[in-house]
Design a protein around this nucleic acid. Structure first.
Lengths: 129, 129
DNA sequence: ACGAATTTAATGCACATGCATCTAATGCTT
DNA sequence: AAGCATTAGATGCATGTGCATTAAATTCGT
């Protein structure tokens, strides 16, 4: 029966991807929440802002680099604003646009959380075969 | 600076895992919903029941093999029951336990959906390097 | 230059999930 | 045998997400 073994190989790869992803994601989520009061989405948002050269990003640019819908990102940013970690500033060139910018507190929180992030990856992300 | 390149390698692997997982998961979710009115969790639940030798599983056994909390699984099963795809039958040996069992409709739905599942994996799961 | 179409981001809504709790049944200790 | 601890699974609750819609600003067509 042709294609049989490639089907099971495909399923195996998907299963192992799923296992691996969930293992890391669950532990990241827990560690970031406990140690830094951040969800994974929140950390990823801060990380995009801290990592890219300029600390000021349009919502849309942010959304493109992330695995969140536009609405989910909007609310994530709202939570970060409420926590004092980012600020929204409207953009003069196109007044529909919104800039999101790290605050000092946001930069500091990200710097702390980065270590936890790396530690969890080192512990739970299996080495490449 | 020691460990520097391994850190970026770690981050790169995590990013690519994330990208890959999201790409596949989003497409699976959409394809299964459109073509078979199933969420990924629902499909995975049916799949566990259809794949394991006996079609009758305790909630707990099911939960162990899945990436869902106990409560999420309980509600997923409730949705599948409402859709007529599985049945709950209580277990005589231990009357706290609940057996979950595929119905004929459930078996049929899984058989159809399996093809969609494989097709999406084949299309979106990158080949191993 | 004016109006329609498009784009940006926020919001109402429905819903799936996890945590904590609850109920029922079983096991364990004395 | 009685009582306490444990286990199985369901449910209340809070929350994060996506879809569809909305409001405001910009762009395009004529």
């Amino acid at each position: 029966m042709p294609g049989m073994s490639s089907e099971t190989a495909l399923l195996d790869r998907w299963r192992s991807l799923l296992t691996c992803y969930n293992e890391v994601a669950v532990n990241l989520e827990r560690a970031l929440a406990e140690a830094h009061a951040l969800s994974l989405s929140e950390f990823e948002t801060l990380d995009r802002l801290a990592t890219q050269n300029c600390d000021k990003r349009r919502m849309q640019e942010l959304a493109e680099a992330m695995y969140l819908s536009q609405s989910a990102l909007s609310r994530t940013v709202t939570r970060l604003v409420d926590a004092g970690l980012v600020e929204r500033t409207s953009c003069v060139q196109d007044r529909r646009g919104i800039f999101v910018e790290l605050t000092e507190a946001g930069r500091a929180r990200h710097a702390e959380a980065r270590h936890t992030h790396l530690a969890v990856l080192a512990e739970h992300l299996p080495a490449p075969t």
